[in-house]
Design a protein around this nucleic acid. Structure first.
Lengths: 257, 257
DNA sequence: GAAAAAATGTGAGCGGTGCTCTTGCTTTCG
DNA sequence: CGAAAGCAAGAGCACCGCTCACATTTTTTC
């Protein structure tokens, strides 16, 4: 609207140095703000009432807009759920990565433990987000894999790198500890190794299966605690430390071995 | 009522041979039939659309009754959910127990494996029921513990007995295998041993923690597969066998040890 | 057997949901 | 400036859980 700004009619594409929002028209600026608001309010509702109770009408109401108005910004309830899921994945990945990056790379045990503890801490702080990505899938809804694949595997990518470091250091636990039958491991996960995720590694099917056992135990420990599947546990943190150590042993051999 | 009653899975309550129902008035007889019908139809809806999509109106419609009429038989939607949950618990317990009872009691490994395989098979056959009891809790609803506690712990009771047999046979895996710190295990699960569930056993905190690690790994393996947390896995059964063996090793020492 | 009581079926109705469509208005762009 | 696109608002549809008043039927009680 403002003709005084000669750049306003130019390509508002991107690559602004400073104040990117100022270059956009009031319409585009408002859209960004509203989209952010929707996600923020939806997050609040998610944290207080859970995913199933998430209501577009309620979000719109909180934002002072008419119920139908929110559909200008959100395609559907499922699409909002997808945004929240992607958001949660990134949040978890960031938490895990930042915790992992504070420990020295050569301390393999500490790296595993930091990932496990960060996962548990994140899940305790945001149980509904945890349920969103690791709980039962929302019925009649499946997240579009093209949007969730990358953030969803971010944590696994980090663990695969760690697993490869363990292998490179010759510290992989003896597969016989887990009673692993190589042939069965091969048929079970062999094809997974084709994934680009493992391109930079020298892991084989047995290594990967060990890693999956450790990850399954770790995630199972967090899931069990968050969903209270065992009822009230006296000291959840102590129990988790036990299970964390057990999961660590699945992949990393103790020093005196 | 008989917990392992096969009719609890939803078979229509036809009058048995000895016809105890014949002694009741037509009103009481009809009530039993309608209650069974409701549970059966609700099960079908649960299997096709999931728990979140379960609708009392739809169940009533399928039964040819007016939507408000169903409230003569069901207190609320949550109460119907509770019935389904209790039903699922018993169904799982029956499946696991019947599988377990077909193997000789002195074959400890086979007993563990049979439990694990029965759990997985049941979960694959009835994924929504599995999600109902081991998935994310339904928001704004918590199952009344007085109704779910007994069926919910039935599988654990069986595993605790197995664990105690493993201990009695001197076949418990070395706790160092899992890197267990006794003091931490004590604080973590010590108080759980007070439960009457462990009254007939001689298990200590370390034994129990080992068992919890095994159970967590086992349940995590099934959860991961049912909820497809790892994406498409080439051969789910082979992978499960690997994880099943790993979970078994958490509690039972291999023979040549 | 008649009357009272309890259980059951019926329909209207309340407030909530996701979502669509139409109607105007404002901003943006050629 | 005018056309096009984006937007707010409201009405409306079909569904949901749940309540209530009312008529009917069965059971119990006198």
């Amino acid at each position: 609207m403002d003709p005084l700004d000669p750049t306003s009619t130019g390509a508002p594409a991107d690559a602004p140095a400073d104040t990117p929002a100022a270059q956009l028209g009031k319409r585009a600026r408002n859209r960004l703000a509203v989209e952010a608001d929707i996600l923020r309010v939806a997050r609040e509702h998610l944290a207080t009432d859970g995913a199933a109770a998430l209501s577009l009408r309620a979000v719109a109401r909180d934002l002072g807009m008419v119920s139908s108005g929110i559909y200008r910004y959100v395609e559907s309830r499922d699409e909002l759920l997808t945004r929240l899921i992607v958001d949660s994945y990134w949040s978890l990945a960031a938490a895990v990565r930042s915790a992992h990056d504070t420990v020295p790379p050569d301390d393999l045990e500490a790296r595993w433990d930091s990932v496990g503890r960060a996962l548990r801490a994140w899940a305790i702080n945001r149980p509904h987000d945890f349920a969103l990505i690791y709980g039962s899938p929302v019925p009649d809804y499946e997240a579009p894999s093209e949007r969730t694949e990358e953030p969803g595997t971010a944590v696994l990518v980090l663990l695969v790198a760690l697993l490869d470091d363990v292998r490179a250091a010759g510290r992989l636990a003896d597969p016989r500890w887990l009673g692993l039958v190589p042939a069965r491991a091969e048929t079970g996960v062999g094809a997974m190794l084709e994934s680009p995720m493992f391109a930079a590694t020298r892991l084989d099917a047995v290594d990967l299966t060990q890693g999956l056992a450790a990850w399954t135990l770790l995630l199972g420990a967090v899931t069990s605690e968050i969903f209270a599947q065992l009822g009230p546990v006296p000291d959840g943190e102590a129990l988790f430390e036990c299970l964390l150590a057990a999961s660590r042993r699945c992949v990393i051999a103790p020093v005196g071995d």
